[in-house]
Design a protein around this nucleic acid. Sequence first.
DNA 1: ACCATCAAAATTGTATACAATGGAAAAGAA
DNA 2: TTCTTTTCCATTGTATACAATTTTGATGGT
Lengths: 184, 184
Amino acid sequence: MSRASDIAYAKIRGFILDGGARPGAQLTEEQLSSIAGVSRTPVRDAVRRLESELILTRSESNRLFVAQWSSDEIDEMFTLRAMLEGHAAARAAMNISAAQIAELKSVNADLSKAIARSPADISGFLSANRRFHEIVTDAARSPRLSGMLQAIVEQPIVRRTALHYRPEELARSAHDHDEIIAAF
Amino acid sequence: MSRASDIAYAKIRGFILDGGARPGAQLTEEQLSSIAGVSRTPVRDAVRRLESELILTRSESNRLFVAQWSSDEIDEMFTLRAMLEGHAAARAAMNISAAQIAELKSVNADLSKAIARSPADISGFLSANRRFHEIVTDAARSPRLSGMLQAIVEQPIVRRTALHYRPEELARSAHDHDEIIAAF
DNA sequence: ACCATCAAAATTGTATACAATGGAAAAGAA
DNA sequence: TTCTTTTCCATTGTATACAATTTTGATGGT
């Protein structure tokens, strides 16, 4: 992870997700290159990745903007994510090992602990949640599907909205995971 | 479409899909740049796109290869495609216009004509098929979903396998489309 | 004031040279 | 021989200069 384009990717992503630029704001490659501290070449690489993750978009004339998500689109993405993960779980069920199931249990225990705190430990929740789905997609043994899930329905949208989760919803997530484990 | 990176994209894609390099074969950016007739810079751009379409992949050490698809993975992709398109159709049903429905009918008529020939006009089938799904995803008004469908579950895999379609399967496709239209 | 037209500035796109990395072949030790 | 180590070469990664394009703002005409 010492490549300049990886650094650029991480820094730009962090910059945007931490609110350094609002949705809809224009960005130039030059700005980004000074933020990342590398030349425009690796920045362009990073930007492509961020585009495919739908964090950045381009205008008609290829100018760069922070992507905007309407609440309708966010809903849509959650629906898609649920569909794809359901599918992944179905596939995983055919291949999953005992060790993986054990890890799922332990991860979900961590997740429960994180949401039991007050205030809830959102970032603990998110990382446990991510790990959980990582194991499932791994067990699904469909690298393409994993890629889709990771690249497209990934964290940023989840992170943005997780801050607004209500406690019941968090609890529900832990419960859903239990059911998935039981099904395996 | 006169940008060098677009030319590179089209040429490289064509090169691979027409069998210029077998699945699993290594490619270098330099080779590709001589195939495309442009420098490595826009080639790298094109390569990124082709990676996200899963036409190319990279080894551990970032060397480039033509992606290999096991029959299991191809099945998997068709399943995913079906899921996503089903979803798109459901959304489209809420928004589609009379004019669009009319166009769907006409496109599907073309499609039927193409497969009625002997031998079947595969490329006619494919372009009508693509147009059909384009209209549906358009009506679904979910640009992100459209993007996913276009970029990831797109033509190349379909094209490779369409050559092996059996006549019944082609007919089935036309029939399915009729049902979708009826549902609208 | 309003619109068209042109010049300039800002931004993205491309080529090229060079640096860094990884793999393969060659050389040496057991 | 077989394993390790070293050197060299193929390939990818990065910086920079310049070209092409698009936006902005200015100028002039109505």
